[in-house]
Simulated scan of single mutants.
Amino acid sequence: MSRGLVTPLQTGPLELLLAPLYWFLQLWSGFVYWIGQMTGFELLQYGFMHRAILVGLCIGVMAPLIGTFLVHRQLALIGDALAHTGFAGVAVGLFLNAVLDLGVSPYLTAVVVAMIAALFIELISEATDAYNDVSMAIVLSTGFALGTTLISINAGGLAVGVNQFLFGNLATVSQDSAAILLALFVIVIGVVGLTRNQLLYVTFDETAAAVSGISVSWYNRIMVMLTAMVVVGAMQIMGVILVAAMLVVPVAGASQVSRSFNESLLVSVVLAELAVILGIAVSYYAEATAGGVIVLIAVTVYSLAVVVGKLQSRLVADSNPEMGSIEAGEID
């Protein structure tokens, strides 16, 4: 059953702020339902699938957009660290709801906790001169330990439904969580659009960027916070365990067939969207976990991209044969 338009009498300040996004969700649901009526696809007849598809489409853009920068900066594993701290954020939200009856969305607390954790990854690296993988390991362990501790307390049935956050679930993409995802999508796209040149400079040459007056540490923090937003948004259908794959696998596949950064970015988005759409459809009809199916399809697409990349390289080599050596006797 669709949700009505948000009014001041129905909701609190957060939902009033997200009111335009609720309105957009209604328009989207009507549009997808109409497509379902025209095509006869059963999965397009249900409201939860409308939200799941929209969330998947947004993830298919956000994840490779940020993942392309991360892969080139050799930070591919940061997604795992922030996913586990995002799980801790979910546990914090569930705990607060159970103990204080706040009624806050667990995904909102996950965003806050994951962004704080992202900043700690950078601060630990800067303060201790430790490698990034060390700070990521510390934050990952701390985040998951906090989450499991709060879950084990089991205040008010806290452990109920945890699997949906670990493995993702199409049916549990609520109107509130979809609206939060849309807000994160707008923020991520907007910030990357405004800071793209600086992020590129810092990604490929931090030293030169610092010499030119760019605050490298500031843009590093922006990148990890954007990553936290993407990870929490993708956690809805991918789950904590698999969410990092969407940051890395499409980008890795695109790098096999692309010749420039911009081309790699575009191709990675196409590959991610292909994996998401096929994954959601297959998981619905096969009654399988969406996150697992999406990742399996993404890895399959990556394998095909590797083959295509090898064929491209061979064709280029064949079309540009090396000049044979000139024998001394051939020179007059």
Rank of each mutant, 00 (worst) to 15 (best):
A127R: 15
L140K: 12
L158M: 03
D80N: 01
T128Q: 09
T149L: 15
S141W: 08
R73T: 04
S135D: 10
D129A: 12
L96M: 13
L102H: 01
A98T: 05
A145G: 13
I121W: 06
T148P: 00
V160P: 08
T68M: 01
S125M: 10
F144M: 15
L150R: 08
T148H: 10
A91M: 12
F120D: 02
T68H: 07
A137S: 14
L119P: 01
V111S: 14
A91F: 08
L96P: 02
V113N: 06
A159H: 01
G143E: 11
A130V: 10
I124F: 05
V162C: 04
T109E: 04
D129Y: 06
V112A: 15
V113T: 13
G93F: 04
I153Q: 15
V162F: 10
A114Q: 13
G156R: 10
A145L: 09
L140G: 12
A118W: 10
D133W: 09
Y107V: 06
P106H: 04
Q74G: 00
T68L: 06
I151M: 10
M136A: 08
D80W: 07
A110P: 14
N132E: 13
Y107N: 13
A91T: 07
S152Q: 09
F69N: 09
G79D: 04
A110N: 02
N132F: 03
G79F: 03
V90A: 13
G103V: 05
V71A: 07
A137E: 06
G143M: 06
A83I: 00
E126G: 05
G103H: 07
A130H: 05
E126M: 14
A127I: 14
L119W: 05
V92Y: 08
T109S: 00
L70G: 05
V71F: 00
F95Y: 14
A137V: 03
I121H: 02
Y131M: 11
F120N: 02
G89S: 10
V139S: 09
V139M: 03
S141F: 12
L100P: 04
A155D: 08
A114S: 14
V112E: 03
G157I: 02
L100T: 03
F87I: 11
N154C: 11
A98K: 02
L94C: 05
V104A: 03
T68K: 07
A76Y: 08
Y131N: 14
S152R: 00
D101H: 15
T85G: 12
A155P: 01
L96N: 07
A98I: 14
T128R: 13
I116T: 04
A118N: 13
A145E: 05
A130S: 13
F120S: 13
A88R: 09
I78T: 12
L96K: 04
S141D: 02
F87D: 11
Y131D: 14
V134M: 11
G79S: 00
A127G: 10
V71E: 10
Q74R: 15
L123F: 03
M136D: 01
N97D: 11
V134N: 00
G157E: 14
L77V: 02
A76F: 03
I116W: 00
F69A: 00
E122S: 11
A91P: 04
V113F: 12
V92T: 07
